[in-house]
């Protein structure tokens, strides 16, 4: 396999994480898949810009986020709705336990979806991708204290929303 093929295989392996990342950013799985597709296409066209030895995930996540930011500037204002539940149904999951577990998951997703975009960025990177504050700051081009305060406000909003829904951890 030549290096490009290796990189492409690695990109394919990253798709589930890219989808999750984009789903948090966009608020809908359909928009997320559009973003992921565009990011993968851009990555393929610009494969020579990727520096082997550096983190491929950071590179392609940045491409995906840039695409979404540009896309949003083009004045899309599509309403998000919780479609992960539908996706689960399609995948064939059922049963009472699953439904109950998914009710809480749905509520948590709705809480995340209600956050402003700059807070969803840090939730996606730090809480879900488990980047350090410093790594998230690098990726977003923000000072580290700002990443911390955004996540701080996101956590406060999530805690409030989750408490209001009457579900306790």
């Amino acid at each position: 396999m030549n290096p490009d093929d290796t990189t492409r295989q690695a990109l394919i392996a990253l798709i589930p994480r890219l989808r999750r990342f984009a789903r948090v950013l966009t608020g809908s799985i359909a928009d997320a898949d559009d973003v992921v597709q565009a990011a993968l296409e851009k990555a393929m066209v610009n494969l020579e810009q990727y520096q082997p030895g550096t983190r491929l995930d950071s590179w392609v996540f940045r491409i995906a986020r840039n695409h979404w930011v540009d896309d949003r500037r083009r004045a899309h204002n599509r309403m998000g709705h919780d479609d992960i539940g539908e996706m689960l149904d399609l995948a064939g999951d059922d049963g009472v336990a699953v439904v109950e577990a998914s009710a809480e998951a749905r509520m948590v997703r709705a809480a995340v979806d209600s956050l402003p975009p700059e807070q969803r960025d840090v939730v996606a990177l730090v809480m879900l991708e488990e980047l350090t504050y410093r790594e998230a700051a690098d990726m977003l081009g923000l000072p580290i204290g700002t990443v911390m305060s955004r996540l701080s406000r996101a956590k406060a909003a999530l805690a409030k929303r989750i408490a209001a829904e009457g579900t306790v951890q």
Binding site: R17, R23, A105, V108, V112, M127
Partner: peptide
Amino acid sequence: SVREAFAPVLDA
């Protein structure tokens, strides 16, 4: 719990 809420996307 946030990771759990979005885990279905990883598994889909």
